[in-house]
Design a protein around this nucleic acid. Sequence first.
RNA 1: GCCCGGGUGGCGGAACUGGCAUACGCGAUGGACUCAAAAUUCAUUGGCCGCAAGGCCAUGCGGGUUCGAAUCCCGCCCCGGGCACCA
Length: 834
Amino acid sequence: MADQTAEQGTAEGRVPDYDPQAVEAKWQQRWVDLGTYEVDNDDPRPPYYVLSMYPYPSGAAHMGHVRNYTFGDLIVRYRTMRGNAVLSPMGFDSFGLPAENAAIKSGIHPRIHTDERIEELTSSIVRLGAVYDWRRKLTSHQPDYIRFTQWIFLRFLEHGLAYKQKAAVNWCPGCQTVLANEQVLADGTCERSGDVVEARDLEQWFFKITDYAQQLLDDLELVDWPERVVTMQRNWIGRSEGAEFSMPVVDADGNSHPSEAEVHVYTTRPDTSFGMTYAVLAPEHELARVAATDEQRAEVDAFIEQARNTSEMDRLSSEGALAKRGVFTGAYVHNPFTNQPVPLYLADYVLLSYGTGAIMAVPGEDQRDWDFAEVHGLPIIRTVQPPDDWEGKAYTGDGPVINSPAPGATFESLDLNGMEIDDAKARAIEWLETWGLGQSRVNYRLRDWLLSRQRFWGCPIPIVYCPDHGAVPVPDDELPVIAPDDVEFKPTGESPLNHHHGFLNTTCPECGGPAVRETDTMDTFVDSSWYFLRFTDPTNEDRPFDAAAVAHWLPVDQYIGGVEHAILHLMYARFFTKALADLGVAPNELREPFRRLFTQGMIRLGGEKMSKSKGNLVAPEEILDNEGADALRLGQLFVGPPADDVDWEGVGIQGAYRFIGRLWRLAHPASDVVPEAVGDDALVIERETHRLIARVSDEMERWSYNTSVAAFMEFTNLLYKQGRTDFAVDALLKLLAPMAPHVTAELWELRHGAGAHIHEQAWPEHDPSMLTVDSVTMVVQVKGKVRDRIEVDPGIGEDDAVEIALASERVQEYLDGEPRKVIAKPPNLVNIVP
RNA sequence: GCCCGGGUGGCGGAACUGGCAUACGCGAUGGACUCAAAAUUCAUUGGCCGCAAGGCCAUGCGGGUUCGAAUCCCGCCCCGGGCACCA
C-alpha cells in the first residue's frame, strides 16, 4: 500500500497522496513544541476565554466529544488568528459513580481506573487536533483541587450557605445514594440508573442556593444564551407571586381549637378567597395530627401512613380526579374573608415542600380543587365570571370578580365584585395586611441543593463529629481531607469510608478529644461548579484562584456543551460564581460565569440516541485511523447546523475526505492538476476570493459552519474549472485553517517554506470594492412566475430595468397589451402584472 | 394539558431582511482512465407531460395577506425536546 503511494507520487504531474496519519501526528507535536496555544495571564493581546464543558473521563472519545471539541477548537484557532490571547484549557470531571462501580466489580481502585480513562480520552482529544494549554490541566480528584473544593465548602459553611438538616430526601436504591431534586426525573426515577427513587429521612448537607433564587432569575438578563435554556432555568426557579395568610383552626361552629393552632396558607390567587370552600394540609404537615378530631383520628393516622409509604412515582401515576386522595380531619379553619368555617382536609396533592405546605382550596378556579371537591362532595363557588359559552369546570381565565362577597352575605368585610383579577389580587392583599392576617409573598420552586452522597469516589466533606462539639469544620491547614486507598468496595448503602477505621477515627479540632469524620462525599456537580475559575490560576497554592486572574479572563466568552446541562450544571455554576463573588473570593463584579453559551445538538444513529448502553456507537478512533482528524472534523461540521441533532448516517466522512484530497492536489506547490488562472479568469477568481472571505467571516460569527464547508467546496470546484492563483489558494487555506488545521498547516508550510505557520497568520480581510460585479442576472416575472432571466448592469435604473424586461420576447408572449402594474426592484427583479 | 423547536428531492441539508426553491455533499445512473478493480475524473439526477422548444405541479395539510410566500397571519396534522399535582 505504502509502496503504491510512493510510486504514484513520482508519476508525471502528480504529487504524493495526502497522508493524514503522518501529517496530523507531525502538526499535533508541532503545536505542543511551539506552545502555540499556551497563553499567560499577562499576555498583552485582548483576552478571550473559550471553554468546552470538561468531560467525565469515560475512555476514548465518542462522537459527542468530537462534536463538542471540534466547535471549541475551531473557535480557539479562529480567535487566535483574529488576534486574541485565547484561553483554552481542558480538564476532567473525574469523580463519579462509574469509576466506583467499576471498582466494586473489578477491585481496581477508582483512581487507577480513572487515570487510565483520562489517558485514553486525552489521546483521542489530541488526535482530533484540538489544542489546549495543557499546562492548565486539572482533574477533580487531584489533591490540590480537592483541597480547594473543601476550602470553598468551609467558606460557604461559615457564611450560612452550607448547612446540615434532616430531611426527606430522594434515595436511589440502584446508585445506593441520595440524589438532588435535579437528578430525579419527572416520573420519579433516577436520571442515572432509572431506578424508582424512594423517600428517606436522613441528615444531609445542603447548599443554600435558594438565597440566590431571585438573582439567579434576574441575572439571566445578563447572558447571551439560547432562549430555551434561559426558559428552562426560569421554569426551574419557578417564581410565583401571591399572598400568605393565617387561619385559626376551629370547630364546625367556629369555636377556637384548644391548641390555638393557625394554618398558614400560600396562594397565588388571593382574589378568589371568597370561593374557598375547604382548606388542605400536606399529609406530613405538623398540624395534621394536632388538628384531627378524635372521631377522625384513626382515619387521619391511616392516611398519613399511607401517604408516607406511597412513592413519588405512584403519587404521580395516579393522576386524575378520583385519585385526589385525601381525608377530612374533622377540624375546620376560619375563612376571614367570609367569616365562615370551612372544613380542613389532608390530601397528598399538597406538598409540604412548596409554599407553606397548606392551601386554601378554591374549586371554582382551580381544576385540582374542583376534582377533589367533586369526589368529597364539597361546595363549589365561582368567584370569576366565566364567558357565556364556558363549558369547562374550573375557570382560570380573566373576567370580572363575582360572589365576593356572595349576594346577601351578612359579613361584608371586603368587596371585590366587579373588579378585574389583578386589581382584586392587590385589594385582597391590602386587606389582609390592614387586618394583620397576612401579606404578599413571593415563592420559588427552587429548593436547596442536597450535596451529600453516600459514596466513596467523590470529594470528602471536611467535617468532624465530636461528642462534645458536634459538627466541627476541619481547619484550613489540614486540608485536603483525602480518602485512603486501602478500602473495600461494597455496595452497602454507606460509604466504604464508614468501615475504614484509620480514616473514620480522628480527633476533634476544637478539643483534641476522640471524634469521627464525616464519611459522605460531595455531589460531583460541586466539582464542576468552579473548575472554570481554577483554570485561570491553576497552580495557586494559597487560594482556589487569584481574583485578579479571574477578573482578567471571566466571564467565559464562549461556553460550549450539551443541552442536557441546561439546568443542573449551569444553575449550580452560576450560584457558585455569585456566592464566591459575594464572599470576596471571586471579583465582586463577576455576576455571571458564562457570557455566551452554545448548546450543541445530540448525535443519533438510526433515530436513537447514541450511547454505550444501546450499543450503537460509531468509534471516532476508527475514522482517525483511516480518513483522519480533518475529515472527521469537516464531516461533522458539514452535516448540519451545530445546534441541531444529527443522525450519524447523515455524516459524510467520505465526502469530506474526498474534498481534502481535492484541496491537496489543488494547493500543493508541486501539483499541476489545476493550472494557473490567467486573464479574465484570474480577475473573476480574485473577486470570488474576496466574496469567499466576506462570506466565511460572516458565517464564523453566526456559527453557520455547515454552509462554510459548502462554500469551501464550491470555491475549490471553481478553481478546478477556472484555474488557481496564489492569492486564492492562500486565502482558502487560511479560512479553512480553524476547521481543518492539519492539512492546511502542511500545505501552508509546503507553499511558504519550513517554519511558516498558518495558524499564526492573521485572518484574511476582504476588500469591499472587490465585491462589485460587472453584471447581474435580473429575473423577469409575469404575475410572480419566472419567465426570463436577463444579464443587466448592476447599477441599472428602474425605468431601464422595466424597459428591458418588457422588451423580452419571452415576456411578450404572456402580455396582452399594456401591463396593469409593474413592480421593479432593480437590478434583481421585475414583476409584471398583465 | 402548557411552553419551545422542527416538517423542503432517495438521504443530510441550503435559501441572512417575502423576490431565480432544491446551493453543497451523500447515494444512484452512465462515460473516460485501467487487463481488471480501487482511486481519480467528466456528465446526468424533484415529479409529470412533451421528439423538442417548452409547459404544468411540488417546501406536512387547509385557508388568508401580497404583484410575489418555504419565509408573514389564521386553523389543523405529524415528529422531537422541556415542564407538569408548585397552590
